[in-house]
């Protein structure tokens, strides 16, 4: 089966996020008050062949831990669902 995988990579708490800080600082000038906690991460999407959803989730988790994220500075949330027909 084919599965669509979405990996949402975020900087861990306490890790410097200049892009998020810059966006947050710009918001009041644009009239958007009261917005806080802006953080910028990245998403990685791919399709993966696997026997079932559990195997796809396990392989995607391995890929994420070994390559797509650096666990010293990043966390990730992995979402797996069957690919559209």
């Amino acid at each position: 089966m084919e599965f669509d995988v979405l990996v949402d990579v975020r900087l861990r708490g306490g890790i410097s996020d200049p892009a998020g800080a810059t966006i947050e600082r710009a918001l009041p000038a644009l009239g958007y008050d009261g917005v806080s906690g802006v953080s910028v991460g990245k998403t990685v999407r791919f399709t993966m062949e696997a026997a079932d959803e559990a195997e796809a989730a396990a392989r995607a988790g391995d890929l994420c831990a070994s390559f797509l994220t650096n666990p010293v500075i990043e966390d990730a949330e992995v979402t797996v669902r069957p690919a559209d027909g």
Partner: peptide, 17 residues
């Protein structure tokens, strides 16, 4: 070298912008 695991830690973005 840090990504390769030959040295510990990581290099994050500079404290300033």
């Amino acid at each position: 070298l840090t990504e390769a695991g030959l040295l510990p830690g990581a290099l994050q973005k500079n404290r300033g912008l």
